[in-house]
Amino acid sequence: MIDARQPAIAAETKPWRSAGTRPFISVKNIVKRFGDFTAVSNVDLDIYKGELFCLLGESGCGKSTLLRMLAGFEQPSSGTITIDGEDMARVPPDRRPTNMMFQSYALFPHMTVEKNVAYGLLREGLSRAAAYERAGEMLRMVKLEKQARRKPDQLSGGQRQRVALARALVKKPKLLLLDEPLGALDKKLREETQFELIKIQESLGVTFIVVTHDQDEAMTLATRIGVMKDGIIEQIGEPREIYETPNSRFVADFIGSVNLVEGRIDAVAPDLMRIQTEELGPVLLPPQTGYTRNQQVWGAVRPERWALSRAKPEANPNAWQGVVEELGYIGHMSHYRIRLDNGVLIRASQSNRLRDEDPISWDERVWISVQPAAFRVLTR
C-alpha cells in the first residue's frame, strides 16, 4: 500500500538553511554542449529530500536540458550529478530512481486510464493483480477512480494531466521530474491544478523538480526556485526571497513587475545613502554597507510599494508628481501607469480593498511616493 502519511519537507525545517545537511540531489559544475553551443554552463545546484523545486526561465535558457540530464536522457559534457548519494555518471535512465512527466502527457490512446497507469509496472514484471491494485491506489489519490475504464480522449485536459501524474508516480520514484506539466491547461484549470499538485507531493513526500516558464506557477508551487538565464542559474531562493530581494536586474524584471532606475551613489553616511538617478533625481535610501561613492547601481521598486495620493505626502523625501495615464481594474487590484512631470513612466498598484469611495482615476494629477526601505539596490 502507498503510505500517504509521509510528510513532504516541513516548512519550518528548510534544510538548505542548515550548514552540513546532505542534499538529496547534488549537481556540480555541470556543462552541456551541443557542438559549439553551450546549453548549460557550470551549474551548481543542491536540492533536498521532499522539496518541490522549480527551475524557472525563458524558452531556451537550459532548464529542460538540465532536467533531461537529471533523468539520464542527456549526458553532461562535464561535471557530476549525484542522487541520494550515488553518482549517476554510468547509470542509464531506466536504472535511476527517477521518473519524468512530459508536457504532452504521452498517454496511450487505445488504453483505458487504468491500463495507462499500470503499464510501467506490468512491463517490469509485476503481477497483473498487484499492478492494477497499485494503479487503483494512485487513481484514488488523484481522484480519478471513477474514470478508470475511460479512454484518454474521454477526459478533460486536467484529468489527462492527473492520469500522467499517476502513471509517473505509480512506480514510486524517489525523484519526479516534470517538464512544463501544466502548460496545456487553461488559466483557471492551471491554477486549480497547481494546488492539487502540491497536495499530492506533500502526501507522498516525493521530491519534485518542475520546469516552467510561468513565474506565477513557480511562486505558487515551489519550496525554492532556481532562475535560469543563458545556461546559468542567476539566483536560487525561496519564492519570497526571489521576489523581495532579487540579486540582479534580470531576476527583478523576470519575476513579477518592477520599476528600475539607474544611477550613481551620491552620498554614503551612517544615517542614509543617496542615489542620483536620471529618471527620478535624488533618491534617499536607508544606510547600507558595501557601497562606495560614484558606484553605478540600479534601484528596483515593485509596483505595490508605491503610494498614490492627491495631497503631497508628509515626511517622505521620495515623492514626485505626475498624471494617471493608464488605469487597469482587475477586481482585487488596480494597476496604474503614472507619467511624471519629467516624462518618466511609473507602474504602481493598489489593492481595491484599501480604496475609498472616491478612487484615483484617469487623467488625475497625483503624488506618487515610496518609502526609502522599499528600494532594492542592484549592482548588475
Rank of each mutant, 00 (worst) to 15 (best):
F250M: 04
E202I: 00
L378W: 11
K188F: 00
R5Y: 11
A222Q: 05
A307F: 03
V258I: 15
V163C: 04
L139Q: 04
R190N: 08
G157M: 09
L308R: 10
R305F: 12
P93H: 05
K171N: 12
D214S: 08
K32V: 13
E364I: 06
R150C: 11
E196P: 11
Q235A: 12
R190P: 07
F34A: 03
R150D: 03
L308H: 08
S349D: 14
N116A: 06
Q276N: 14
S349A: 15
L327C: 13
I360F: 05
R134Y: 02
G256W: 05
V211Q: 05
V91I: 15
G290R: 09
D266E: 15
A130K: 15
V251C: 04
R353T: 13
G157P: 08
K32L: 09
K63G: 08
V113T: 09
R305Y: 13
S59D: 13
P372N: 03
K312Q: 14
G322T: 03
P181D: 03
V31I: 11
M101V: 15
K174P: 02
A168P: 08
P270G: 06
N352L: 08
D153W: 11
E241V: 13
P286Q: 04
S351H: 10
I25W: 05
V251P: 10
A10G: 14
E234F: 00
Q161T: 12
M141I: 14
L340R: 05
I9A: 09
Q154Y: 01
V210A: 01
P359W: 02
L52Q: 10
K172S: 08
A267Y: 03
V210E: 01
G256T: 06
T38C: 12
I275D: 04
R274A: 12
K32E: 04
Q201E: 07
S78Q: 14
D179W: 11
V324I: 15
L139F: 07
G281S: 06
V117P: 07
I242K: 04
V370E: 01
G50V: 08
E192Y: 09
W320S: 12
Y48C: 11
L197H: 06
F108T: 02
T245F: 13
G237S: 10
G331S: 12
R68V: 01
I236D: 09
D46M: 01
A71K: 11
Y119N: 08
A4C: 14
G136M: 07
D3C: 03
I225G: 01
L182P: 07
S104D: 14
Q321F: 00
R380N: 14
A164S: 14
R190H: 02
P152C: 08
G79R: 11
R90W: 01
V377L: 15
L155R: 04
R302H: 11
K199S: 14
K143V: 09
S203F: 00
P287S: 06
I30T: 07
L45R: 08
G125I: 06
F254H: 07
I242N: 02
M1A: 12
Y119G: 02
P270H: 01
L70H: 09
R149K: 15
I47D: 05
T13P: 00
D356L: 08
L165V: 07
L189H: 10
I81S: 05
M273I: 13
R240E: 14
S309P: 02
E145K: 06
